[in-house]
Amino acid sequence: MTTTVLEAREVTQQVSSPEGTLTILDHVGFQLSAGETVAIVGASGAGKSTLLGLLAGLDVPTQGAVLLGGQSLSALDEDGRAALRADRVGFVFQSFHLVPALTALENVMLPLELRGDSAARAVAAEALARVGLAERAAHYPRQLSGGEQQRVALARAFVTRPQVLFADEPTGNLDAATGLRVVDLLFALNREAGTTLVLVTHDRTLAARCGRVLELAAGKLVADTLTAAA
């Protein structure tokens, strides 16, 4: 029996603009099961990143609901959503978002330290070794290549063993070869951890590596297909 980890119920997001109300997402609905890998694709402005933000509880929809682990995010205040994220969610960003003042190891330790994990250093060192950067633990982000920075970000995302991992264009700032290596690592880690992966991308090849593809156009979910990888 598959467990639903994440659910979007008729999610609509509207914003006010000088031209009137803009609908960014229009009644989007789907369910994701544990361990599933899903790509959200679509043209620029289709609403991919907005959907990702809503699914991760970084914002709440104007209408509809997002349920993470059965819990409606709209019913929680910002701190409540933060607490849920701390327990169940990991992130990988297009621009890495490493803290410039922290070394690679300290960046990986950050989410553990925020949770008060007393073994943060050892666990983070292990995670960094897993992405092949044990030797670069004391290096600052500015001393690392783009691929290395994204590997640090992957270690940081998986170190708390999240239930759901959100990746926003994880290869968007990388060249093709480096991007490929990073994606291989992402999927490997995902398999090991059994994490549900939600990935936003322009890249159809990358999307094809996920088991399922959700396609957005003008804020609407226009296709929900299983891939060969499923």
Binding site: A56, D79, A82, R85, H97, V99, L114
Partner: peptide, 12 residues
């Protein structure tokens, strides 16, 4: 913003 994204409450 990053700390809050990782689950840190506003008070924190």
């Amino acid at each position: 913003a990053l700390m809050k994204c990782m689950g840190a409450p506003q008070r924190f």
